[in-house]
Amino acid sequence: MATQASRTASRLMLSPAVVLLFLWMIVPLGMTVYFSFLRFNLLMPGTEEFTGFENYLYFFTDPAFWPALVNTLTLVLGVLVITVLGGVGLAVLLDQPMWGQGIVRILVIAPFLVMPSVSALVWKNMLMNPVNGLFAAAARGLGLEPFDFFAEAPLASIITIVAWQWLPFATLILLTALQSLDREQMEAAEMDGAGPFWRFLHLTVPHLMRAITVVVLIQTIFLLSVFAEILVTTNGGPGTASTTLTFLVYMQSMLQFDVGLGSAGGIVAVILANIVAIFLMRMIGKNLET
């Protein structure tokens, strides 16, 4: 629905964004692929040589690889489950008539605005620290032994922190979706004798599906690259208990300066993300049509 002239103009205006993003994607990715086939350590410059798939072999046989893969998926799925379920519950609650709704909403939004390194530090030191943390103080007050969160359950602790950061996001989006729910449809169902539970299951939940899709899509994008929370709290430990793929690659390339190995890991991470992305895009494509 336009003229040739406007289509030409449109292509011109679109091209900077497309070209930049294409370069941003292809140049570093190409370099990473190239590096992944080299023996390349920043501490030993000039010793680069082609090694074929050796780096990949090392990466896959690295004892940290499988735990990192499992940890990554556990982190993403764990946070998604907590935030979607919690978000639906909170959204339904906040949608009820109450006093001071605006203030409650401000309170709930807040964690989303806190930078990841700060929330990680606060939770690590002031809440979860086994000696001086508030949880420890509370446990002692109840006559219990304080729990050393990051030593005993490092991944679960990180999931808790990340879920706390993303719960507001899920809640807000689901709440917005709830508010656009057709009240007349609800009342019609009520007239037809449908109970509150039936109405929630058959009217509210289907209405929220689109919003849930958005939550899952956007959160997955960000959750796959959770980094600061791990760096600040556990540094991936103890052992590999809280090492994710992102963190493993970071350690190999930035701490051990093994660019070749790190690059191979990076490519694996990219492939993993693509597999996830294909699933998501299928789902989104269906749910975001119209």
Partner: peptide, 10 residues
Amino acid sequence: MMPAVGVLVP
């Protein structure tokens, strides 16, 4: 969706 870590080194 491309993980940042995949292109960190380059």
